[in-house]
Nucleic acid binder design. Sequence first.
RNA 1: AAUCUGUCGUGUGCUGUCGCUCCCGGAUGAACAUCCGGGGGAGGAAAGUCGGGACAACACAGAGCGCCAUGCUUCCUAACGGGAAGGUGCUUCGAUCAUCGAAGUAACAGAGAGUGCCACAGAAAACAACCGCCACGCCUUUGGUGUGGUAAGGGUGAAAACGUGAGGUAAGAGCUCACGCUGUGUGGUGGUGACAUCACAGAGGGGUAAACCUCAUGGGUUGCAAGGCCAUGUAUACCGGGGCUGCCGGCUUUUGCCGGCAUAAGGGUUGCUCGCCCAAUCCCGGAGGGUAGGCUGCAAGAGGCACGGAGUGAUCCGUGACCCCAGAUAAAUGACAGCACCGGAGGGGAAACCCAAUGGAACAGAAUCCUGCUUACAGCGACAGACCGCCG
Length: 133
Amino acid sequence: MIRHTLPKTQRLRSYQTIRQLYQSGATGFIYPFRYSYLTEPTEADKGTQPRAEIMVAISKKKIPLAIHRNRRRRQIKEAYRRNKHIVFDALHNHKLRLSFIITYIGDETVTWQVLEKKIVLLLHDIVNRLESG
RNA sequence: AAUCUGUCGUGUGCUGUCGCUCCCGGAUGAACAUCCGGGGGAGGAAAGUCGGGACAACACAGAGCGCCAUGCUUCCUAACGGGAAGGUGCUUCGAUCAUCGAAGUAACAGAGAGUGCCACAGAAAACAACCGCCACGCCUUUGGUGUGGUAAGGGUGAAAACGUGAGGUAAGAGCUCACGCUGUGUGGUGGUGACAUCACAGAGGGGUAAACCUCAUGGGUUGCAAGGCCAUGUAUACCGGGGCUGCCGGCUUUUGCCGGCAUAAGGGUUGCUCGCCCAAUCCCGGAGGGUAGGCUGCAAGAGGCACGGAGUGAUCCGUGACCCCAGAUAAAUGACAGCACCGGAGGGGAAACCCAAUGGAACAGAAUCCUGCUUACAGCGACAGACCGCCG
């Protein structure tokens, strides 16, 4: 049973990884999100553990005010935090490390309930793609 | 009382579940970390990035030119293009014999150097003659025409060459005079000063400087992505071109090396020029490569509040074992419920009153800090003003 936390170590913070993701990450689309992700296998001799790193990006064109972008980013992070067990179970089964970016492309009218449902769909989508190879 | 406008103040709180970040203490652990406990964690504008400063790096012999900013006075302030108090002009309102008071407003130095511009209309917008008036000449003589004088009258315009009266003249004109108006100069008085007021002299040829400009004052450049340290790395690397000079002395068989002086393509002097300074481990171009990780700067000060004092005021001084004091870094300070708050569809009740659904809850998110300005803003409170009504 994992705890539903989201500390610094599970957030995507490396410039190089982000660059790699935008250049060569596998992408998908579930409205109102677009996502791209990369995986690498864990290596037991180096002591790396399965884990996921996430980043949330929001377009300034869609949501112009900083305070509204902040709120939307917090809601997305919250939705991921509450449902991240979906993807974590798969990662442990396949011994993978995952980095991914969720880009919000909706507008300000999407409600919290819809947002959480769509995140769950998105996570299941990623898991399906991992399982199928 | 209600509504509206303006100014000032304030600008959500509590509970639950699950989370984030920083600091302190403890535990596990080689370490990264993880866990437990405690504490701190967005704004009045954090915004616009507009002024001014602190702080930092680089630069700085000097002179000239240029560029930018500011522009009534005194004061406040670390400083300012900010603020306070005042002066002057203009506008509005009110009272009044003159004159005075209130509110608002002002890029409010110079149009006695020069240049430019002044739409339309008008003859003309700055060397004024269209009509008119006057003199003289000519002709086909109730008139027409030419030359000259004339800014009193007409007409145009936002603005037409000081106003009124008298003298004067061919007709006229500040041409002369009186009174007045507006500048200038000198002197007196009051005021720290802007300025006010009085006297004398002399002048009257528009406006426009957020047009160029003139005058006065100020201004080195870049900004925390500043800068410092650690780690990493590749620097006197590679290719092409330029330069690699002259004299003297020393060493040396020579090539060459070292030192001094001179020259200077080039570089620096952070707008330009002169001047000054630098110098072969140099300068220009090409191609290619690397880094972009961590720590620091980085949070207690031009801080708030209370009381007392000085000042018209901005503000300053003193006292206080009074209070506060975010530091994130693909960027924490939250998400979701419920209640409180506003509102009240509707329901209950004889009534007072009670219960209440949907809904509403502004503007807005630190990024080195402070200070000011500007802009955005629901609700509540205070104080002014306007309007309506006068039974509230």
